[in-house]
Amino acid sequence: MPRLLVCTDSYPPQLNGVSVVTAAMVTGLSARGWECAVLAPAYPPALTAPLSQPVTLRHVALPSRSLPAYPDVRLVWPPLRHARQIVRDFRPDVVHCATEFTVGWAGLRAARAYDVPVVTTHHTDFSRYCDAYGVPFLRPVVQRWLGRFHRRAHHTIAPSAAVERTRRAMHVGHTTVWGGGVDTTHFSPRHFSLLSRHRYAMGADFNFLHVGRLAPEKNVEFVLDAFAHLRNRFRDRRLRLIIAGAGPSERRLRERAGDDVMFLGAVDRERDLPALYASADGFVTASETETLGLVVLEAMASGLPVVACHAAGVGEHLDHARNGLAFAPGDMSGCVSAMSRLVADASLHERLRAGARAAAESMSTDRALDQLDALLRTVVGAAAVSYESSPSPLVMTPAR
């Protein structure tokens, strides 16, 4: 049975795209014959983020502290000692570093010390966050940091072709595009519920939904402004915007929103989110930094027409006028026009619902996990051949 050690700075119960994909990876690979161990931050008992934690045979939870401006984010002091210990004791065949922060870096260094092959994933292009946080001058520094991290791996996973091109520009070789897919059973039109429409006071309105972290890089202010313009166009229609998610920008966004905007906070991903997606009428996002856009895939799987910015990873699975409506980055009139078309054109709305579901079915999680299983086994096999050709047998002592 091959062994996989996952080193990540974000894991359940924390809720975000990285933790969701990483947890699905652990669960899916365990079902495919892998013995998995996880090195991740410890989360306080008070954190009740609605994301179940996959069961692993070995899960090392590292002492952590919250980021002052963003309590859900946990910071771990560079845990090289813990990483070396679990590599030495668990004896993984491959180490997967899902993040580039302290836990990911420790996993990378420990794996290299013991000559274990390393696979990294470039989930988030943090260099693109620099503009959103008002420090654009740091973008080249962050890019160099990311490039250095991934160049030290045996193989890098890119969530989209756009990310792969960026990695290659940084001279990161051995890259494979793998986005993790979407669970088309958990997220499905069959979860439509009149009870959910009543619960969220949707009524007979046309309800747009936004799901995601409420942080500057997600560009939620743009969505609020677009919805305000939309309301001015349709004064005779009842329209609402529902925002699911939490984050450091939540208070400021609530102050900016009108009476027709409902904030739900964090929504239970297992129990409530599927019905929320399937029971809404349209999905809207204006993020320009998504390497994959998992929430867009989940909306599509739920049969929800999508209005989204045609940028980064989202642009690769958003097919304009077939499974959603796209607008250019920063194009407010384009976003409002797309939202207006969904409200006014019932036949277009139904065509996009069908197209969205069909697109999601071609990107199922099961298919993606089969691909990942094959990739990791190839990496392990290549490393074994390399070790066999070495004049010295492999032993679990740190490499010099």
Rank of each mutant, 00 (worst) to 15 (best):
P50A: 00
E388Q: 09
R271W: 01
S333T: 01
W77C: 13
A228I: 04
V60L: 12
P41K: 13
E350R: 15
H122V: 01
A383N: 13
A132I: 03
L375A: 03
M170Q: 15
G265W: 08
L253I: 11
V142M: 05
G303F: 03
S249W: 08
T56Q: 07
R213E: 07
D183K: 12
A98I: 03
D125E: 15
L318N: 04
V380C: 07
H122Q: 11
G181H: 04
V119P: 09
A153V: 03
G381W: 00
L241C: 05
Y387H: 15
R139L: 11
P63W: 10
E298M: 05
H155M: 14
D89A: 07
T22Q: 07
A132L: 05
D272T: 00
E100W: 02
P136M: 12
L75Y: 06
G17D: 06
Q14I: 15
V87K: 06
F227A: 12
A299Q: 12
T120R: 05
L325G: 03
M339Y: 01
M363G: 07
L239Q: 06
R152H: 01
T124P: 10
A111W: 06
A31M: 14
A360D: 11
D183E: 14
A360M: 07
A299F: 02
H154Y: 02
I86L: 13
R357F: 03
L75H: 02
V76R: 08
V261N: 04
L195G: 14
N16G: 00
A37D: 03
L67Q: 05
V20G: 06
H82N: 09
T175P: 09
Y70S: 11
